[in-house]
Amino acid sequence: MDMDSSTPRLVYSSNFLHALRAKSCIGVVPCLPVDVRKPYRGCRAGAMLKAKRLAKKWRFKPPVPSMIMGNVNSLPNKIDELAALTKNLKTFRECSLLCLTETWLTASIPDANVELPDFSTVRADRDTKACGKRKGGGLALYVNKRWCNPGHVNIKISTCCRDIELLAVSLHPYYLPREFSHAIVVVVYIPPRADAEAACDVIHSAVAKLQTQHPEALVLISGDFNHATLDNTLAAFHQYVDCNTRGKRTLDLMYANVKDAYRATPLPALGKADHNLVLLKPHYTPRVRRLPTTTRFSGSGLLTKPSRL
């Protein structure tokens, strides 16, 4: 008791207060004096806070996967920079897929040298015998583990010839709209001197086979097409890259079998690569949100709820 002041008050020593936080008190509610107890003041609320919580909850569950694609011109000497980007930048860290072409990977380079934290790696190195070239080429697909479980990543088709390198991967993510059974990502690299018509025929055969087996799948085709396009080969697919990727030319393209699904944003090149990276942000509205609201009647009264497929 402090006797010098006019109003008597309680004074607690630091040892007494620190003793309340000792390990022996964990799991046991101490008997605190009334003047030391922290009053309960509720929790934060508001529309802005609820929107932030909802965005944080669904940031790894987009309706269609977000994607960063581009030609990297040798990945082993740029893997440290890519790892730093995926660790420090939100754009790379929360991206669902990284589709990279011309990785220049060979069988002598183990997977441990090109792995990224929180990403599973799928690679397709160039077959020198089938392709006839020793250097260049190679495909790599990095799948965010927070978007899709690594056990649900399966290689469907892997092709390498003189005219094209193709890798098709089946993905079953944690969330997709009901209109899609799963996602199939096709990564393509067409060399500059390849036969464009023969390369498009290979892509058409692979995509037709995949769509026959999985008619309700979301199919994404990305890569370095150089002088080839799929505008006449796959008329039902939509192309979304509308920015320059190398100088004043658009060589890296992305096709999808869904309309109004993405918006493209150019990014700086990785290291000293001569191609810019491209960020494809999801812009797709699920079908359940596009359908009109249905009104149903029941014995208890009027019920109004959105339609569901």
Rank of each mutant, 00 (worst) to 15 (best):
267 L>F: 15
209 K>R: 13
70 G>P: 07
167 L>M: 11
260 D>N: 15
293 T>L: 15
151 G>N: 14
133 K>F: 03
239 Q>G: 01
132 G>D: 10
122 V>C: 09
109 I>D: 04
198 A>N: 02
201 D>K: 06
291 L>F: 09
208 A>I: 00
152 H>Y: 07
144 N>R: 13
129 K>W: 09
111 D>K: 08
52 K>V: 12
261 A>S: 09
121 T>H: 02
191 P>Y: 02
302 L>T: 10
119 F>A: 07
106 T>Q: 10
290 R>F: 01
154 N>F: 12
34 V>T: 13
62 P>W: 11
203 I>E: 00
307 S>M: 09
213 Q>V: 04
233 T>Q: 03
243 C>S: 14
159 T>Y: 06
235 A>H: 05
269 A>V: 06
306 P>Q: 11
164 I>V: 14
70 G>C: 12
154 N>L: 15
279 L>C: 10
44 R>Q: 09
296 R>N: 09
219 V>I: 15
17 L>V: 12
238 H>F: 14
77 N>Q: 10
217 A>I: 04
43 C>L: 14
293 T>Q: 14
19 A>G: 13
96 S>L: 04
154 N>Q: 12
284 Y>G: 07
61 K>T: 14
114 V>E: 04
116 L>F: 07
288 V>R: 08
198 A>H: 02
40 Y>E: 11
182 H>I: 01
203 I>A: 01
309 L>Q: 12
253 L>C: 05
163 D>A: 02
233 T>W: 01
33 P>S: 13
122 V>D: 01
129 K>L: 15
16 F>V: 03
66 S>T: 15
250 T>L: 05
227 H>L: 10
211 Q>T: 08
184 I>T: 08
93 R>H: 15
242 D>I: 06
81 E>T: 11
104 W>Y: 15
202 V>I: 09
129 K>N: 11
126 R>C: 04
264 A>E: 00
10 L>S: 11
226 N>M: 05
16 F>N: 02
298 S>E: 08
78 K>T: 06
274 D>E: 15
228 A>C: 07
188 V>P: 02
59 R>M: 15
41 R>H: 10
204 H>I: 00
203 I>V: 10
99 C>G: 14
256 A>L: 04
226 N>V: 01
39 P>Q: 13
195 D>W: 01
168 A>W: 01
59 R>S: 14
184 I>Y: 01
53 R>Y: 09
255 Y>M: 02
143 V>H: 03
33 P>D: 13
87 K>S: 15
294 T>A: 13
104 W>G: 04
192 P>W: 01
202 V>P: 00
